[in-house]
Simulated assay, not measured.
Amino acid sequence: MSTNEQRRFALVAGEASGDLLAGLLLDGLEARWPALQTVGIGGPRMLAHGFQSWWPQEKLAVRGYIEVLRHYAEIAGIRRQLKARLLRERPELFIGVDAPDFNLDLEAGLRREGIKTVHFVCPSIWAWRPERINKIRAAADHVLCIFPFEPELLEKQGVAASYVGHPVANVIPMTPDRAAARAALGLDPEAQVVALLPGSRRSEIRYLAARFFAAAALMQKAKPKLQFIAPILPGLRDEVEGLLQAAGMAGQVTLLHGQSHAALAACDVTLIASGTATLEAALFKRPMVIAYNMNGLSWRLMQRKQLQPWVGLPNILCREFVVPELLQEAASPEALASATLEWLDAPVKVQALQQRFSALHVQLQRDTPTLCADAIQKVLEG
């Protein structure tokens, strides 16, 4: 089949970070196959490519064992309906973008019925839940890996894989323009700015945002001239404004309409939820304090399966605690405020961290859209 003939792929990206990855993936796929049609479940970046989303992406943006259980019936129902529709319409390829709890089972079912499958972003079997390798082996014809050490790990377990680089490493400039970002956001070019990123999921806002805003109040008391910004998804704004009011910070935190990259470019330091955004913060060369808090039972279950001492991606990739991690009970407003303020008074430490993050950035930069398209073309031809 020539690149000009029409192909039809299905994709599922279950949350904001997956939508970002899938949007970049679609750049490469559409360059290779200009007449490509894509369907499934996705967010705004995918929709901008003409992607047809059969359900709102927010339906899948749930994290933690207990939170997933609360929404299990609805999510399982979506997966059953999606699988049935895909088996009727039979796209040439299914690409699961991250969201392994949803996508791997779906991929396995489609693969058994003869639909080729690719999984984009290797589940972090090197960090926790190593037993997932068996599910990956059954689910994916090929895995597109965003970290350089992953393909060898997978191939030893009989899973075909390619390192494609981390797409975000090519989006974020090696030297971010802090002054331009501040001008765009209307921030004082000379002020010290703290970016608060409590997460993109409603469950993260529920468990983390109040702690972040209470920490901001303590930081403001210690340094009254600090400026605070917080990128928030539009659907969460009312909830966030209520939490700011409760923390006595109403009007003291500039809420941004998304714009997490602008916030990271503009800030001096970020207080940030563990997840993909921490890697983005590292690529922006920003010091950070990584925090997480979730349902207590979910936390205990996760701890039992954790294989490494680190949770944050910058620490995992650097193989040491280059930035603080304050998790669960340790993520008190007092501890969060103290650790964040410490970066503002440690310019030598910040400079050393920026050098580490610059080296990491170079390692993750690849022509990701083209490498993804190359790997996917081999799957289709294989």
Rank of each mutant, 00 (worst) to 15 (best):
A73R: 15
Q6E: 15
A108F: 02
L86E: 04
R70E: 13
A215G: 12
R63Q: 14
Q363D: 14
K349V: 10
N103K: 07
E89A: 09
F149K: 04
W55G: 02
Q192L: 03
E190A: 15
H142Q: 09
W126A: 13
G186I: 05
I146P: 06
A291K: 01
I136L: 09
N170I: 09
A359S: 11
D101I: 08
L196A: 04
S162M: 07
L36N: 10
I172P: 00
D188W: 08
Q328D: 07
K221T: 14
V379T: 08
P123K: 05
V348Y: 11
A16C: 07
T175D: 12
V97F: 11
A263Y: 05
P231W: 12
M302Y: 09
I41Y: 05
A214P: 00
F9R: 02
V362Q: 14
Y65F: 15
R111Q: 12
F321Y: 11
A282D: 01
L271N: 06
R8Q: 10
V362D: 15
P151Y: 13
E58H: 12
Q192T: 07
S338A: 15
Q52T: 14
S2N: 07
A139E: 10
A359M: 10
I290H: 00
D141H: 15
R112H: 04
A139Q: 08
T270S: 11
R32W: 00
Q306S: 08
L297Q: 05
H361N: 01
L336I: 08
W55S: 06
E131T: 10
L69W: 15
T254P: 05
G77P: 02
L60R: 00
V118N: 03
L21S: 14
L353R: 09
P347Q: 07
E342G: 02
E30Y: 15
A191I: 08
V362C: 13
G248W: 13
E150A: 04
A183R: 15
G235L: 14
A335L: 01
H257C: 07
W33Q: 01
D367G: 05
R178H: 01
E190C: 14
L106N: 02
E58D: 15
F94N: 12
C267I: 10
N293H: 13
V164H: 08
I75D: 01
A291D: 01
G235T: 12
D177S: 14
Q351E: 11
Q252D: 04
H49R: 10
D141C: 09
P333C: 14
V62M: 06
L226G: 12
L24V: 11
W33A: 10
T276K: 08
L313P: 03
I272E: 11
L255T: 02
R111T: 14
A209P: 03
R85I: 06
Q157F: 04
G382S: 13
P287N: 04
W54K: 01
R85P: 03
Q220C: 07
I125A: 07
L283V: 14
A76R: 13
V253M: 07
Q37F: 00
V289I: 06
T370E: 13
G23N: 00
P324L: 05
P324A: 07
L20K: 01
E204Y: 04
A273P: 00
I41K: 06
